[in-house]
């Protein structure tokens, strides 16, 4: 379903695409999604190397330039550190109990096909097609951005104070992979939640601290949230039935969903936090 939604949005964002799929968590285990520009080389022996470092068997499942490692949940940080230190060409795109992230440069339908998005299953998922504005068209510059466990963010719009915010967050120890404004938004929310805010509270605070135009969709292990800036020019449509909640930049993206004819369809209000939890 998400693959179809992304396909419809190709002309809005032809440069790159990405998606996050949330599966059902397995007790004691966490998933780490990694990516490499040279996957054949980088992923051979990666599981064994990581397993050696954390002292247990680690499973790896590869999809194209990405792979998902299944590791003990309590050793997530050690895994990240090991990959960073020992496997320079491997980038961690996201990690958590439930999240898997896939993103790549290219036409969205092709990106979705490469990763086999149509056959993935999960409780909820977020996708994005990108028309790059100021930062480079690269794999890491594609959305979603994940800066915290099981968190991810996609963004339509353009922030106007992201450079200052990035510097502030970097001073607080947050690492950035790109020059992208949306990554700053993701990191900002992660930082807020790291200080104990709920996603809803973090989004509320974001209204004060994030300047510019945005429609955000944010995913967590349990659900997803939507927020538009107070001016609310960038498009957003929500659809809700008793079976699903769906978000799109245009109705077009939602048109093929089952039961859309009778769904409650509306546009989110400016500066209002919407949140659904399972």
């Amino acid at each position: 379903m998400l693959a179809q939604m992304l396909g419809t949005m190709c002309d809005r964002g032809p440069d790159s695409a990405g998606f996050a799929v949330y599966g059902t968590p397995r007790s004691g285990l966490a998933k780490v999604t990694v990516q490499s520009p040279a996957p054949d080389e980088a992923f051979s022996g990666l599981a064994a190397s990581v397993g050696g470092a954390v002292g247990t068997e680690v499973a790896i499942e590869r999809r194209g330039s990405h792979a998902v490692l299944t590791v003990p949940a309590d050793r997530l940080e050690a895994v990240r550190d090991h990959i960073r230190d020992q496997h320079g060409t491997v980038r961690v795109l996201g990690a958590g109990d439930a999240i898997e992230i896939y993103k790549e440069v290219g036409y969205p339908t092709e990106v979705a096909a490469v990763f086999g998005l149509a056959n993935m299953a999960g409780t909820h998922a977020i996708g994005h097609t990108r028309m790059a504005t100021e930062s480079a068209v690269t794999t890491l510059g594609a959305h979603p951005f994940s800066t915290g466990p099981d968190q991810c963010l996609v963004h339509n719009g353009s922030l106007s104070n992201h450079n200052n915010l990035r510097r502030t967050l970097a001073r607080d120890g947050i690492r950035f992979e790109t020059e992208n404004d949306s990554e700053v938004a993701a990191a900002y929310l992660t930082a807020q939640m790291g200080q104990g805010s709920s996603l809803g509270e973090a989004l509320e605070k974001g209204l004060d601290d994030l300047d510019g135009f945005f429609t955000f969709v944010v995913g967590t292990k349990n659900g997803f949230g939507v927020l538009r800036d107070p001016i609310a020019c960038k498009p957003a449509v929500l659809a809700e039935t008793d079976r699903f909640v769906a978000f799109g930049s245009e109705y077009r993206a939602l048109a093929a969903l089952p039961g859309i004819e009778t769904a409650k369809v509306w546009e989110p209000e400016p500066a209002t936090v919407y949140f659904w939890e399972r």
Partner: peptide
């Protein structure tokens, strides 16, 4: 200062 019925390059297209 902005167009009344579009904002940004994706809308402009």
């Amino acid at each position: 200062c902005r167009h009344p019925d579009w904002t940004g390059p994706d809308d402009l297209e």
